[in-house]
């Protein structure tokens, strides 16, 4: 296990917005088959890290290396935005849900499988005249969508607009949509935000099932109950720097983590308050 390259290796990642350093020289690893949690107080730079990994920000310096199960290594920081999901197979959800509200639940999941159904534009255009293997691909896509709808318990609402779903269901749908891209790494930005305790439990179960299917997870979360229960590995950020890294138990007992959360002995000179807002 230890000889194998980690799924995602973040090395010396730094992200500056003008004079503000949101993330400074951050290094950590996410191993294959594990749930890695990134936690930290508000403004610690967690979402910025996510945006760098998923191609929404270009890091100021540092490297993000993804090793796919087939051994191919990709430098995420130099891939164009849409290639992150398509080639590197890294999917993400958003802190404020970004579903296609005016499209149905099923359509949301079909859009996620766009690249599998339409590998080239020419092929996509030829499908207008019924050419190509579009029909069989669509059938496969519907089956996959049905599988995930079943998984999140929304099969009976497949034909309802996504914007009309209750909040908790929208969160689950966003996860299912990301899973429909067939990722090797799923990045979740506060998936439990706004959920009630029962919904949080269901979410934990869903995430464990996703891990069981062979997809690794990287998650930002404030709900410590969820983090401690499902994470294999926790990385703690504060003011853009890593202050702790280890198993949930180790992190929980780390004095530096306790200090960061309770604000003890914290005499930092700069407060990256804008970091979270910018992210």
């Amino acid at each position: 296990m230890s000889t194998q390259a980690p799924l995602l290796a973040v090395a010396n990642l730094t992200m500056r917005f003008g004079g503000l350093t949101a993330v400074s020289a951050l290094s950590f690893q996410a191993r294959s088959g594990e749930i890695t949690a990134v936690i930290g107080p508000n403004g610690a730079g967690k979402t910025t890290v996510f945006n760098c990994i998923t191609g929404f920000y270009r890091p100021t310096s540092g490297g993000l290396t993804l090793t796919r199960p087939d051994g191919v290594q990709l430098a995420l920081q130099s891939l164009p935005g849409h290639r992150i999901a398509r080639t590197a197979k890294v999917a993400r959800t958003f802190q404020n849900i970004r579903l296609f509200a005016g499209m149905t639940v099923l359509e949301n999941l079909m859009v996620a499988q766009h690249n599998m159904m339409m590998p080239t534009v020419i092929g996509g255009l030829l499908a207008v005249f019924g050419l190509g293997s579009y029909r069989s691909k669509q059938r496969v896509a519907i089956d996959r969508a049905r599988h995930w709808l079943n998984e999140i318990g929304l099969l009976n609402r497949a034909d309802d607009p996504a914007g009309a779903l209750p909040y908790g269901a929208q969160r689950r749908l966003e996860i299912a949509r990301a899973m429909c891209t067939g990722p090797v790494l799923l990045c979740l930005d506060e998936p439990a935000a706004g959920l009630n305790p029962r919904e949080s439990d269901e979410l934990s179960d869903l995430l464990m099932r996703i891990r069981g299917d062979g997809c690794s997870l990287l998650l930002i979360e404030h709900d410590m109950g969820v983090v401690m229960r499902i994470s294999d590995h926790v990385v703690v950020l504060d003011h853009g720097k890593k202050i702790s890294d280890g198993t949930p138990t180790e992190v929980r007992n780390d004095p530096k983590v306790i200090a960061a959360y309770l604000g003890e002995g914290d005499e930092d000179e700069e407060t990256p308050a804008g970091a979270e807002a910018a992210a």
Partner: peptide, 17 residues
Amino acid sequence: RAWEALREDEIACRALG
């Protein structure tokens, strides 16, 4: 469908590859 998704949310489209 991708056109309509683009109209709904361009950022989400990018995140889906």
